[in-house]
Amino acid sequence: MLTIDNLSATVADKPILKGLSLNINAGEIHAIMGPNGAGKSTLGYTLGGRPGYEVTGGSVDFDGQDLLALEPHERAATGLFLGFQYPVEIPGVSNLQFLREALNAQRKVHGEEPLSGAAFIKLAKEQAGLLRFDMDMLKRPVNVGFSGGEKKRAEMVQMGILAPKLAILDETDSGLDIDALRICGEGINAIMRGPDKAVLLITHYQRLLDYVKPDFVHVLAGGRIVKSGGAELALQLEEHGYEAVAA
């Protein structure tokens, strides 16, 4: 589904990704771990097409398309969803309005009719219910005044509504309380487990991986993948640290 080949990228002229390669097949869950500043969020932003993240080498194929040639909104319509480490607040723009327009923009690309107001509200209620997220909060402006954990949960509701093929979730677990962690973990499974879907989880801790069991775990350090393994690698890392395991 996603093939990243030898990807290099700079931020503010500073090389951050330095020849990163990674292959994710449909139906797989991958986890990326790695020290602070290793380039994990940079990988997510580069794949999402954030301005300022300049690709200096390599290629990314997403379902047969050259992902890097697409605009951010086209990447979304192709089925990519980026969960932000720090979700952005947008004053005055309601979650429901924004998500309905975003979903309908994606549907338009696929030649589908826009979802009616009623059908959209039904979908939003279902997805909010799955994440035990208050519908009233979805009427409020995007992320404004949400607590850290509420922002992360709101993003999972967004993911449920937009139903992507590939979700890159950047520290979705940070800021979540114990119950919210379980609810989000189960939400990720409900939304993203499937033969034609895949997930790339960026995380620092095993705790989310207890709920969303990864098929592969990778260590990202110094802008490239330095070690890959199965679910047990995360446990080793937690026990022994990066220096011992990935040196």
């Binding site: 605009e71 951010p72 909104h73 932000f84 998500l99 975003a102």
Partner: peptide
Amino acid sequence: PQGLFYLQSRGLPPAEAKKLMLHA
């Protein structure tokens, strides 16, 4: 620009994303 990218990353074309923010 961060808000704009956030909206675009969910599938809104740039003009639509700007319109939404300017509307508010």
